[in-house]
């Protein structure tokens, strides 16, 4: 009986241990190592056959050199800062686009809602990579967007959108909008329509009722959506690589270059660890918001 319970509880812990904690430990270890012309390209490596002395020697060779290095080259902190800026702005844009969509869905006739929900989720059925490549086709100089705008006569010369930050924002907003829409929709859908009628009855116009009732009551959905967009957007790598230009500084891109172009695994791992530390703050805040939401529902 007790064993059964222990077993059931241990399953998620074992899962986390194998797929999260151990890999994290390995990355942490690499970040404390030195580069080497070897396979794998860092030193020291743990040699358990050597016994206690070799383990002691292994630990003595670890140091924080790589973290110190991150502060010497301003590329890194600039990338972190630029990532934060892009993630913030993209989250805000997602909110601007996502809230009206969620609002529209929640106010649509009942029989329409499953279809609208499907339309929001449908893009996930195609590979993320293919969808980002499709945006390259849309945004490039001879792309669909430019052709369309020229055909409309809005512009004479094709616009340069691809390989700029604008393309990165478009890519992030497009990709992560469903993560914004769904939590907001789920709070708006639960909103009791008679609350808005009560607001109007007590003297609100439709607009004030929206700001005083709808928005505060969908706050938890808005917060959840913002974190769900902000957290992955901060470490985003594919979108800035494919849609961004050489001027687009994002930490995900730097990380990739350190690993694969420079083959500097220790520095790359240090970059990843710092990124994780930065992300812990919003993740903790997100969890707290979720908890509040659960409590409010009880």
């Amino acid at each position: 009986m007790n064993f059964r319970r222990f077993f059931l509880i241990s399953v998620p812990y074992v899962w986390l241990l194998i797929l999260f904690l151990i890999p994290f430990g390995i990355v942490l270890k690499i970040s404390l190592s030195d580069t080497a012309l070897a396979i794998p390209p860092y030193t020291p490596t743990l040699d358990l056959a050597g016994g206690w002395t070799s383990i002691k020697e292994f630990f003595s060779q670890l140091d924080f050199e790589n973290f110190a290095f991150l502060t010497t080259d301003d590329l890194y902190w600039k990338s972190y800062l630029s990532s934060l800026k892009i993630a913030f702005l993209a989250t805000f844009l997602c909110l601007l686009v996502g809230f009206p969509i969620a609002y529209g869905m929640a106010n649509a006739p009942d029989e329409w809602r499953p279809t609208l929900m499907m339309l929001v989720i449908l893009p996930f059925w195609t590979s993320f990579l293919i969808r980002v490549y499709a945006w390259m086709g849309i945004l490039s100089q001879e792309g669909l967007l430019n052709q369309f705008l020229i055909w409309l006569g809005v512009i004479g010369e094709p616009l340069t959108i691809l390989n700029t930050n604008v393309a990165v924002y478009i890519g992030i907003v497009y990709t992560y909008c469903p993560f914004m829409i769904l939590p907001i929709y789920s709070t708006l859908e639960k909103l009791d329509g008679s609350l808005l009628e009560a607001g109007e009855d007590l003297g609100c116009s439709r607009t004030t009722a929206f700001w005083l009732i709808t928005v505060p009551l969908s706050k938890s959905g808005i917060i959840a959506g913002c974190f769900l967009v902000f957290i992955p957007a901060l470490g985003e790598f594919v979108i800035p690589t494919l849609l961004g230009g050489s001027g687009t500084l994002m930490i995900g891109k730097v990380l990739f270059e350190e690993f694969f172009s420079n083959r500097d695994w220790p520095v790359a791992s240090a970059v990843a660890i710092v990124l994780l530390l930065i992300l812990i703050i919003p993740i903790v805040l997100y969890q707290r918001n979720e908890q509040k939401m659960m409590e409010a529902e009880q």
């Binding site: 009791d192 008679s194 609350l195 009628e197 009560a198 607001g199 109007e200 009855d201 007590l202 003297g203 609100c204 116009s205 009732i213 505060p216 009551l217 706050k219 409010a296």
Partner: peptide, 19 residues
């Protein structure tokens, strides 16, 4: 419109603002 009437309503569900 409702907000311009000297009429107030007590709703069946009470419709109290939960926040």
């Amino acid at each position: 419109p409702p907000n311009k009437r000297a009429v107030n309503m007590m709703f069946q569900s009470y419709a109290l603002f939960p926040h």
